[in-house]
């Protein structure tokens, strides 16, 4: 049984994009704030902070989740992936490159979250169709693109264009 006192900082350890990270967090510290302000991982953006906009979506143990609806202390021992972990030494990953090619972003605020949701979809349903892609994108608010370029980019990566 793990008990953490309110208002005090407690040690948290998890895997972030393949490397072990450690920090200290009060129980109430949101994972989104821990990633940005304690670990300097600013790729995860913070929008509504109540789970509606999708900007802070990351992956925990492979599943896309809202970082603003988790506490950092819950992450002990978990495997966390953020947008910083997508690109490889040779450059952007396939989804990122396709977004660039199809003008799937403008301001880029929503993009990291969208990438993390689409990466789970690609892992679980590599042949997902446009309706399924649009369903997943419905969890993300993008006010620049009208979604068209994002859908086109995903369709290319999912082999549907």
């Amino acid at each position: 049984m793990r008990y953490l006192e309110a208002g005090k900082r407690h040690s948290v350890r998890f895997t972030l994009n393949g490397r072990s990270v450690e920090g200290e967090a009060e129980p109430r510290l949101l994972l989104s704030d821990f990633l940005r302000h304690h670990l300097g991982a600013f790729g995860t953006h913070v929008g509504c902070e109540h789970g509606s906009c999708g900007a802070c979506t990351i992956r925990v143990d492979g599943k896309a989740v809202r970082a603003c609806l988790l506490y950092a202390v819950q992450m002990d021992g978990r495997v966390v992936e953020t947008v910083e972990g997508l690109a490889n030494p040779d450059g952007l990953d396939a989804l990122q490159a396709a977004l660039q090619k199809h003008h799937g972003l403008q301001c880029g605020f929503c993009t990291p979250g969208i990438l993390m949701s689409l990466s789970q979809l690609h892992d679980e349903e590599p042949k997902a169709d446009e309706a399924r892609i649009r369903d997943v994108l419905s969890g993300h608010i993008c006010r620049c693109t009208g979604y068209h370029g994002i859908v086109q980019a995903a369709l290319e990566v999912f082999g549907k264009s």
Binding site: M1, L4, A6, E26, R28, L30, E49
Partner: peptide, 12 residues
Amino acid sequence: MKPPAFEYLAPA
């Protein structure tokens, strides 16, 4: 955003 402070318990 800062939620109100709380104690955290993860029972086994």
